Amino acid sequence: MSTTTIRLEDEMKSRLNAAAAQVGKTAHAFILEALAQKVEQVEQDNAFHALAEERWARIRATGKTVAWDDAKAYLTARAKGDRARKPSAKV
């Protein structure tokens, strides 16, 4: 395990200590949890963007898309808890 040093303004350190105390954690545990959450979010964002790029490339290559009305009907049914058939992509 390695060590990283961060420098905090006094006000931020006070806020950090207060926030950590409010949730029953040490400042160290609070910082580790915050870092883990931020890293996870960045990883999820990157995966989302990669998937979007992949799908956009497929649309450009095939010209196939799902009509908005079909997509809206499908999503509305799913939001209501109904089982719905996925609409198919068409040129």
Rank of each mutant, 00 (worst) to 15 (best):
T65M: 12
L35T: 01
L8R: 04
A67M: 10
A27W: 01
V23Q: 05
T65N: 13
S14N: 07
A20Y: 02
T4F: 14
K13C: 06
E9G: 11
A89G: 05
W68K: 14
A47D: 02
T26Y: 00
E43W: 04
G81R: 03
A36E: 04
K90D: 09
E33S: 02
A57T: 11
A34V: 06
F30D: 00
Q22P: 03
H49A: 05
A18Q: 03
T26H: 05
K80I: 00
N17L: 04
L16Q: 01
A57E: 10
A21K: 13
A47H: 10
A47T: 08
A79T: 06
H49P: 00
D69V: 10
D69S: 13
F30K: 02
A89K: 02
K25M: 10
A77F: 13
S88I: 12
A57L: 11
A47I: 12
A34Q: 08
K64M: 12
A73L: 02
R78I: 13
A29Q: 08
A84Q: 06
E33F: 02
G24Q: 07
H28C: 04
E43Y: 05
I59C: 05
R55N: 11
K80W: 04
T76E: 12
G81F: 08
W56E: 13
R85F: 13
H49F: 09
G81T: 04
A71G: 07
D45W: 01
T65W: 04
E9H: 11
A89C: 05
H28L: 01
T3Q: 11
S2D: 10
K80F: 07
T26E: 00
A89S: 13
D45Q: 06
K38I: 03
M12D: 06
E40S: 03
L16I: 04
T26S: 09
D69W: 10
T76M: 15
E9Y: 12
